[in-house]
Structures are given as C-alpha cells and as structure tokens.
Nucleic acid binder design. Structure first.
Lengths: 220, 220
DNA sequence: CATAAATGTAAATGCTGTTAACATATATTT
DNA sequence: AAATATATGTTAACAGCATTTACATTTATG
C-alpha cells in the first residue's frame, strides 16, 4: 500500500483523483475542470482515470459524497454545541446558519450537492447522504416542538415536525442559493443573509401553532 | 426585411438563433446544447452565429433575457388578477405560486436565470430584468402592509417591506429550487410545494409584526 | 513459476467552441 | 448606375475535451 510502489502504478489513484478534482473545483469555483487536469495533478496520463471511474460524472459523484460528508459533520458539530442549551429555537437557527455558512465557504460544492447538472440518474443521487443531513435538522425541530408544547411529541406531531423542517430547509436553501449567486442583497443593500434567515425562521417557528394547524387536523 | 431574401443571407438570424437556443434548452432540459445544433436549426453554418454573438455565453445571455420577460409577464398577470381583491395576503401568496409554477414549467430557463454557471461577468447580469420582477413582489407586499396597518406606509415601513419581500423571495426561491431538483418531498412524501410555500409565507406575513420589529426600530 | 487480473500509457475518434480566410449580398457614396 | 465599403454568410482549420482502443507493465493467484 505504498504511495508509489513502482513509479508505474500509483497506489492510491482513485482517492488521489477525487481529491484532485475537489481541489480543482474549489480553486476554479466551478465544475468545469477537465479529466486531463485532474489526471495531471495526480501525476498520471489522461486515460488512467477511466480505470477507476466510468466517466466524469462518476468522478463528480464521488466528490459530491465528500461534500456531503463535510456538510454533515458541520451540522453534527453545531447540534453537539447546542445539546445542553435550553434555547431549543436557537439550536434550530444555528443549524440554518451552519447550512448558510457551508454554502458560502464551499460554493461549488454546494452547487454540486443539490443542483441537477443536466443528466443526473436517480441511482446516482445517493439519498443516504441527503437524508442524514435532513435528519439532523429534523431532530432539532422535534426537540424544539417538545420544548414548546411541554409534553412529548404525539399524534401528528411527528408529521408536523417533518413539515416544519421542510419549510425551514426550503428557506435556508433559498437564502443560501441567492446569497451564493450574489442576488440576496441586490435590492435591499443593507440586508444580511444571517438576519434574513434567522428572522424568517423565527417567524416560521412562531407561526407554526397559529396558521396551519388545521392542515394536520383534517388530514388523518 | 424578408425571411430569406436571397437564400444566402438569412434575414433574421440573430432572433432565429436565440429562439433555436431557447427551443433546444427547453427540449433537452439543460444548457448543454451546441452552437452547431442551434445554427443547424436556424439553417446556417456553425460559424454564422459568431457574426451576431461574441460567444456562446453571449447567446445564453439573450436567452436569459427572454426567460426574464416570460417570468415578468406571468407575475404582472397575477398582480393584475388580484388588483381588486381585498385579500392582500392572497395576492402575495399568488405571486409566490406564480414564481413556483414558472420554475416548474421552465426548469432550464429558471436555472439559467438565477444560477451563476461558472463565469458570469457582472456586466452581463442584466440587473434591470431582475429588479423588475422583484419590484412587482415588493409592491404586493407594500400593498399588504398598508392594508394591515390601516394607514399608509411611513417611517421605516418601506424598509420593512423591502426586508419582508426579500424573505419571501428567498423562501419561494428555495421551494422552487428544491422542487425543481426533486428534493422537496424527498423526506416528507406527502408534502406539496404549493402548501409548503403558502403556509410558510403565511407565517412570515403573520410574524412580521411580532418578531423582528426591533431590528428596524433600533436601526435608524 | 506461469498466468490472469489490475492498472498504467500512447494514440486515435468524434464532438466542441472558436477563429481565419474567403465569398456574396446589401448599403452607401460618387 | 457604377464603385466601393460593410454586413453577413461559407468552408477549413485549430485546440481542448471526454472517451475508447490497443498495448505495456506491475501485482496477485494457482
């Protein structure tokens, strides 16, 4: 398992190519790197990658997996920091802010994670990674709802949490996406993404009991 | 100004290329059409487009303009339909739903409009089109705030409307983007994009007076 | 140790955006 | 109307790209 056993065989080419691609994406801020460049960076010829990946999309899929791991660990860290905090709402906001900050600090990765760049096959979606991140947000929301109601979750409360978490995700995703494309403060020059996200999330958490409870009552 | 004056000169090649590109984008659901295909569809050689567009991005910029016109007229139509409706909140929701429906019915256009596909120069952004659409949402929000307070907008109310409109835009954009990438009901299978958007927007409109008024009071 | 499998290389293919040299139609000037 | 400049088309070429094929070399296996 040496790095360069012979000078001919690489030893860790698969991993090296994923890291090379990730580095190129970060540096160039876009997904339009070439297989040739990634191979060059790993020190092999431009055909070598095809021994480890079916095509460029396959390589990108593996970079995407890496990106999801990064986001997931950031969310996990945030949730850990709020474990003993009695302000369960603040924990929910913090999850949203972590999402926003990840998007800001990893623009191209964030785009790669969520955007369907033309020809994504369903099998390549990797639902596991996506659901793991959402589960963390969901548990924060559930924790907050328990705190708010004074009792444990019951009846359609689980569905309520699921619905609220989806709303919060959509909100955070919109803020992060617009911010990343330099659109969010195009009109309101003084607006800050963090404020917009937290204020809107506050309204969502505050409004959940008033507005749309009926949707869940009348549904079962 | 004939369609084909001589068989050699096209007559309306510039417009024909924009329409051909738009058609290819719609058909293929992505922006990865080739100049050659667009030229072929317009009945000219693959080098002819370069007499009318500096490069492919220039052609895409013109397709984007077309897409913005489509969204703007849809929003304008919706606003017109709610002009004499006393339910000003419903008008705001309708603007969001129009945005969502445009995104659904024009996936690739929607992506082209907002996403920075790698190398967008600031000059090519066409701020006018973007701000025109936002202005329509903003006026709907202002109208709702006037209705709610019983008096006309005063003090920092304009800024409040700007801030709220930005929040609503981010929300609608997030819902539309996640929905277009088949992510929105990945976890909550029963969730409908329309419900998520309207319910969350309701909470935003309901919560604006309670939660973050202080941000505007302490700011001036 | 022989041989199969894995993993590298070089060369070729076809598609792409783009440019250069050239041809023809249209507009303008005399 | 003839001469000429400009606009707009063509064909042929270029480099860069993803990908494949034929071949070479190293590693693993019986």
């Amino acid at each position: 398992m040496n790095s360069s056993k012979s000078g001919y065989h690489h030893g860790h080419l698969r991993d090296a190519l994923i890291l090379a691609a990730a580095a190129l994406i970060e540096e160039q801020g876009s997904l339009s790197f070439s297989i040739t460049d990634a191979a060059k960076r790993a020190g092999v010829s431009s055909a070598a990658p095809y021994r480890h990946f079916h095509d460029k999309q396959d390589l990108l899929d593996n970079v995407r997996d890496l990106a999801f791991i990064g986001l997931h660990s950031a969310l996990e860290e945030t949730q850990k920091n709020y474990r003993d905090n009695s302000d369960t709402g603040a924990a929910v906001y913090a999850m949203g802010l972590t999402y926003l900050n990840y998007a800001r600090n990893n623009r191209a990765f964030f785009s790669l994670m969520w955007e369907d760049h033309g020809q994504m096959q369903p099998e390549r979606q990797n639902l596991a990674h996506k659901s793991e991140g959402f589960s963390l947000l969901l548990s924060s929301v559930e924790n907050h709802l328990i705190q708010g109601s004074g009792k444990s979750l019951c009846q359609n409360a689980e569905q309520k949490a699921l619905y609220l978490a989806t709303q919060l995700w959509a909100l955070a995703h919109g803020v992060a996406t617009l911010e990343n494309n330099q659109l969010l403060n195009m009109f309101d020059k003084s607006a800050q993404a963090e404020n917009i996200l937290v204020d809107a999330a506050s309204a969502l958490l505050a409004g959940i009991d008033q507005v749309d409870t009926n949707r869940f009552e009348t549904q079962g």
